[in-house]
Design a protein around this nucleic acid. Structure first.
Lengths: 209, 209
DNA sequence: AAGATGATCTTTACGGCGTCCAGATTCAGA
DNA sequence: TCTGAATCTGGACGCCGTAAAGATCATCTT
């Protein structure tokens, strides 16, 4: 049986160290925050030497990219679920926005890694627009679904982008605790989030003016 | 003549090192990007030993706070000017938003420092809400100025926050070059920015529905 | 005027970081 | 079984943030 004991399968040499490193990174991220996420700490957490990760990632940035990718995958799943639970288009859009912000609230450190922060990357990963189930594409498709007025390509991209900006901005402000008091004044987080989105362009296409 | 040569006045000991350090930091930030902004590099740039800054700042974070504060001051000035140039309330709001995003585009590294990034601060500085000429207060006051419908306190704060989120989200997406192509399709940056803001809640108060 | 005082700056040092390199170990195919 | 490649370790380098101890210099007291 080798070492394929129970849950952890490490088929050869160390095992799937790449996987183990990503998991260790996410564990550290949750428990210690983004600043604690050094390559050495990840290796330590995974139980290997500081140089071991270099056989699986070109450098620290590539490990963070891998972690970020899993973050995006998780976000996409949550948004897919949130969208599927609603029937009306308007509710779908709101649910997408609320799910986005809640994800950022529940995984602030992971969210930060997803948007780079601290490295000086200049671009977001390409899969955000490419993958069909990506957050971006889901918002865009829902806007198409709404399509009372037939939107041209530029207008559609503009609306999607606007919604994304709104959600991202709100997510960061929530992370910075910019309005914990508003949440209570307005009767809970859900109501608050809906209130902000009402103010913003997620529903821009549905405006009557 | 000592060292009080020509333009640079260092009246005693070294001179106003605190000022020199902040300037050096901003210079590095512009020329080398945020990752290059180490405390040692700043000291080097200012021509002092690595430990010298500790007589003027508690730690690296406090230096960054000082740099960030100047960034906010600059942003506030730009927004004051932009607002003053317009007469109609609607134009004022748009001008505020456009000025905000342009500031972030022109000073991406500084903008990052202002929103922390990389340290795990959990809050934004308090002066953002306290100072009367702050970006936040200017948007809020302009919304009050608009005040066709009398807004209650919560509603006002909500609208201001929504506008801030929108602008911040857009600013970050612009920094990530998420739609350089949209800018050209829509005939320039100005038109693009206005287009996005049209989609968002800066004008939420003016909606007819 | 002279000496004391305290602020400012330098030197040195420590541990942690990202990364590279040389060697050891282990797997896979001939 | 032998060989070569993949994987991991140990050690090293230069950078980082920060602390402590000594040097320098403006200012204050007398």
């Amino acid at each position: 049986m080798r070492e394929a004991a129970a849950a952890d399968n490490r088929p050869y040499h160390h095992g799937d160290l790449r996987r183990a490193l990503i998991d260790a990174a996410r564990r550290l991220l949750e428990n210690e925050g983004p600043t604690a996420l050094s390559l050495r700490a990840v290796a330590r957490e995974a139980g290997v030497s500081p140089a071991a990760p270099y056989h699986h990632f070109k450098d620290k940035g590539e490990l963070l990219d891998a972690v970020a990718h899993e973050g995006w995958d998780l976000l996409n799943e949550l948004m897919t679920d949130a969208r599927a639970k609603q029937t009306s288009v308007r509710d779908k859009l709101t649910a997408l926005g609320v799910a986005y912000v809640k994800f950022a609230r529940d995984n602030p450190a992971l969210y930060r890694v997803m948007y780079d922060c601290s490295r000086d990357k200049e671009n977001l990963p390409e899969h955000l627009h490419a993958d069909n189930d990506s957050a971006y594409c889901q918002v865009r498709d829902t806007l198409v679904e709404a399509g009372a007025s037939p939107l041209d390509e530029t207008e559609l991209e503009l609306a999607t982008t606007a919604a994304w900006c709104a959600a991202h901005g709100l997510a960061e402000m929530v992370a910075f605790k910019q309005f914990d008091h508003l949440k209570v004044t307005m009767g809970g987080e859900e109501a608050f989030l809906r209130g902000v989105f009402e103010h913003m362009g997620i529903f821009g296409h549905a405006r009557t003016d």
